[in-house]
Simulated scan of single mutants.
Amino acid sequence: MMNFVTKLSGFVGKNLTWLVLLTIVGGYFVPSGFTWAVSNTVWLLGVVMFGMGMTLHASDFRLVLQRPREVLAGTVCHYTIMPLVAYALVMVFGLSPELAVGMVLLGSCPSGTASNVMSFLAKGDVPLAVSITTVSTLL
């Protein structure tokens, strides 16, 4: 059983980008085939986070502890740039006050699974992204 899990996690880790793109295309062309996912969103997010976690090692996070300035900079940018971009979008699109408040609040929320997945798919610094998400969520 453990051998199967190792092989499966290796396959998913190497091909996650293609699996995500295939799912997006499938959902676009056959949306009715993906309606089951709505009621299982929590479980699916858990699977995605577990899959990303399988690609990380403890040594990845030791590196992050050795560069706390990057975590601090990312967190500060998160709470300054994102709300400012949200405000700029409100101004550019002339949103109603209700939508404006929602947009700025959304821009001020901590990042989550999606940002970490995008970092993973872009071959970015996933341990740093996860660390910034953790610090932002705790704040």
Rank of each mutant, 00 (worst) to 15 (best):
G51L: 01
L16E: 01
M91D: 10
M82A: 12
F93A: 08
V71Q: 02
G51A: 07
L89R: 04
R62H: 08
S136D: 12
L105T: 11
A114Q: 07
S115E: 09
T17L: 12
M54W: 02
V48E: 00
M54E: 01
G124S: 05
A114S: 11
G27H: 13
F29W: 14
L138W: 13
L21G: 06
L63S: 13
S115H: 09
S39L: 07
C109N: 11
A129D: 01
T6V: 15
V117P: 00
V48H: 02
F93P: 03
Y87A: 14
L56N: 06
V30S: 13
F4K: 10
W18P: 01
V42A: 14
P68A: 06
A58F: 13
E70N: 08
P68D: 06
W36S: 08
G94M: 11
L84I: 06
M82G: 07
L138Y: 12
V126D: 01
T137G: 05
G46I: 00
T137P: 02
T41W: 12
L105Y: 13
F34D: 09
A114I: 08
L121K: 01
P31N: 13
D125R: 01
G112I: 14
V64P: 02
V5P: 07
Y79A: 08
H57K: 14
K123S: 11
D60Q: 07
H57Y: 10
M2S: 14
G102P: 06
Y87H: 09
L139M: 11
C77D: 11
G46Q: 02
Q66R: 13
L72H: 07
L19W: 09
G10M: 07
V130W: 00
S96A: 14
G13R: 04
V76E: 10
N116W: 00
E70Q: 12
A100W: 08
A122D: 13
M1D: 12
Y28M: 14
